[in-house]
């Protein structure tokens, strides 16, 4: 509870700080809106030309896109500490100032940044979800709504976990940390489409290693009434938990890596 209070207070301070430059803040938010709008436009143009992707119709595709967009940018908004600044904090030694405070490192990293501009991206994602839901004629029920919320929530931790990889590589002073982007940004670009579009190696990658399919596609396909992989309905509630599993594995690896942490600068 106490930790949550610190998180909220930190967010308050950071947002207050960002609003000190209102014009810049507004322009950047607008830019985010247009950027995510551009991504959506690409999907619309593809739907316009190809009409469907395997068994997935236009509504399904907008729904998958919206789910990824909302989840990914929710993470980039509230998990900005990990998705954005963390590697540079390791490299510059700024992490030292967090290490001398009596709180968990990851908690403090999460408290160190927020990116409210991403709300614009989430808005685009929400619109896409709504359009998709209308076009696919989803009959909503409490359990389906719950499933959607679970998917977004677990997706948040999945994406945080994937972004942690870059930080862990940084602590071990690996040079080519950009490789981690293949899983994070690559995962976003790929898995805004349902995973069964991809050939087996990619499908395995996004199911087992970076389980976007388990966290998003299994529940979403269940909501759309076309279960992917042909799995029974109850699996849709269990499979998103893979996001937590990945997150906890990564936090354990992170804790291990911290023992090798050598702060930069003498």
């Amino acid at each position: 509870m106490d930790t949550l209070r610190i998180y909220l207070r930190s967010m308050g301070i950071l947002i207050k700080g960002q609003l000190q430059y209102p014009v810049s803040f507004f322009l950047q938010t607008l830019a985010q809106l247009i950027m995510e709008g551009g991504e959506l436009l690409a999907v619309i143009l593809l739907v316009d030309r190809f009409d469907h992707l395997n068994q997935w119709g236009p509504g399904d595709l907008y729904f998958f896109f919206g789910l990824m967009s909302v989840t990914f940018y929710l993470t980039e908004c509230f998990g900005r500490g990990i998705t954005g600044n963390f590697p540079s904090m390791v490299r510059s030694g700024q992490l030292d100032t967090l290490l001398v405070r009596p709180r968990g490192i990851l908690t403090q990293v999460l408290c160190s940044a927020v990116d409210p501009r991403r709300v614009a991206c989430m808005a685009v994602g929400t619109v896409s979800l709504i359009i998709g839901s209308r076009m696919a004629e989803i009959s909503w029920s409490a359990s389906k709504a719950l499933l959607l919320a679970e998917s977004v929530f677990c997706g948040f931790f999945l994406i945080l976990g994937l972004f942690l990889i870059e930080g862990i590589l940084c602590i071990h002073s690996v040079k080519s940390v950009e490789i981690a982007n293949a899983l994070t940004y690559g995962g976003r670009s790929a898995c805004q489409y349902p995973v069964d579009v991809f050939p087996r190696p990619l499908r395995t990658l996004f199911t087992v290693v970076a389980p976007f399919a388990l966290v998003m596609h299994v529940p979403a396909s269940h909501i759309l009434g076309k279960p992917i992989f042909g799995w029974p309905g109850w699996t849709a509630f269990v499979s998103p938990l893979a996001g937590f599993v990945l997150f906890f594995v990564m936090t354990a690896l992170f804790a291990r890596a911290m023992r090798f942490y050598r702060s930069a600068g003498s």
């Binding site: 040079k175 080519s176 940390v177 950009e178 490789i179 982007n181 293949a182 940004y185 690559g186 670009s189």
Partner: peptide, 12 residues
């Protein structure tokens, strides 16, 4: 860094 970028771009 370039190597990381190449791997990433190939993946895309």
């Amino acid at each position: 860094a370039a190597l990381g970028g190449i791997v990433c771009q190939i993946f895309f």
